[in-house]
Design a protein around this nucleic acid. Structure first.
Lengths: 250, 250
DNA sequence: CCCTATTCGCGAACGGCGTTCGCACAATAT
DNA sequence: ATATTGTGCGAACGCCGTTCGCGAATAGGG
């Protein structure tokens, strides 16, 4: 490893002298992304990834200083899936909504990204391109750099939040035993008579879905996926306007 | 342990027969909260908590089936800090904003709660009281149970998001070496000439704060704390209105 | 073309984690 | 007094991220 004390993006990938490495960062990142797509982020351990690549676990540390840095690589790899064309015809708001839709598609393709960004808030090259694009898009609002940065941060977090809600709503297969516990407790609370609003809302939720209602943030959510896209757009629009304009809404 | 297959809130704390336990859930939860307040959530390991309490690590499993369940206990313990009085005089929106302020204060007191809710979205007794309160508050909007549940989920997530932004903005002491790496890379990107908007915004950010600008979501954020509260309220209000009303804004 | 400097691959080991096992022991019910 | 039922917990298991050290591979300089 060249110099472990600087960011990975500033470290050269290949040393000019000595033996040549057998892999590349891109190769490793791609393999890690595939693994996470299939088995979740927790399954991406150094040993498991090394096995997939066909090498030893310790070898990975020739390419990456720590596991967190590996996740950074994965995140930036996936951030490269954004298509950041300029579209001067559309309003800044529509362009941001388009960005939000792209992010939503990416989260659907790579659900582990939702958790990965909980712990890994770093900007790689692709992240910088994304940020540059968003900053440029918001330039026409007249807002200052600080305001726009803040807005983009909240915007990204909000999109992630909504996508997490969507994902948690439609979990596959049988409820995960943990979920069963939650629903059992919620049912008992509903049946207890206190918390009448909760009981009503919970009943309303369960009446449509055949199985127990899934949850988000510990809060039961109905399979109202038909309305999801509309909600998504409206919330994103409102929030952006709230941050970047004083008055008038949608 | 009574029956490990049902939710902890349905399990009796004390068994009628046999030897009496030396601790209580509340005692353990409180100790864990204190530990997390002081050293962060990662420092709350079974062994460390046991040492604080003055017992063996394995003993904790008499009170809690898993570490996640311990975190659930901690979260619900802290959720008990909400003051949920009825205030029929205030508008539903003002009441929700008050709830958001309370949550913000709680996150300031217990910063680890922000991360704890990333992984632990379960409702305990206090969580149910909170949810009941919020549902009741939103009842006057005329929205259905499903819509209100969804709105409360996004509302809570958004508040947490904003508080995380605030927390990451004002980190104490010297930048954590990891931060230094990020800023070094961002500086190099800014200096590279591509990404002009990013360069401008980054320069604007660094000019005021003496040290390097801290970040949120990988995005540098300025110390605009004076405006934070205003932003906070406006975003929360807008988003709530966006979810619960079709037309008119604030 | 060999030699030496330099890097790479990686088996083995370390310390720490969550969790399980099994047993000695304490409290209660009979 | 005895049987029953939980409890406390030392020891151990398996997995994790990470480090060490060394043999093997490569490249540039003579």
């Amino acid at each position: 490893m060249t110099d472990q004390s600087t960011a990975i993006w500033l470290r050269g990938e290949r040393a000019p002298r000595g033996r040549a490495p057998e892999h590349t960062r891109g190769e490793i990142a791609a393999a890690a992304v595939r693994l996470a797509d299939r088995q979740g982020l927790a399954a991406v351990t150094m040993r498991a990834l090394a096995r997939v690549i066909g090498t030893g676990a310790a070898s990975l540390y020739r390419y990456v200083a720590t596991r967190d840095e590996l996740v950074e690589l994965m995140v930036d790899e996936v951030n490269g899936e954004f298509e950041l064309e300029r579209r001067p015809d559309a309003s800044w708001l529509d362009q941001m909504v388009d960005l939000a839709h792209q992010a939503r598609d990416i989260y659907r393709r790579h659900p582990w990204m939702i958790e990965a960004l909980d712990t890994t808030p770093t900007l790689g090259p692709h992240g910088c391109s994304y940020l540059e694009h968003a900053l440029a898009t918001l330039a026409v609002t007249g807002a200052g750099g600080r305001t726009r940065l803040e807005a983009i941060g909240v915007f990204s977090g909000l999109v992630r939040l909504l996508c997490k809600a969507e994902r948690d709503r439609q979990q596959p297969g049988p409820p995960s035993a943990r979920m069963a516990q939650r629903n059992a407790y919620l049912s008992s609370v509903a049946a207890s008579g206190e918390h009448p609003h909760l009981a009503a809302a919970f009943a309303e939720t369960s009446e449509q879905s055949s199985s127990e209602g899934p949850q988000y943030q510990g809060i039961p959510a109905a399979p109202s996926d038909g309305q999801f896209d509309g909600q998504f757009d409206r919330i994103v629009r409102r929030t952006l306007l709230g941050m970047l304009h004083e008055g008038d809404p949608d």
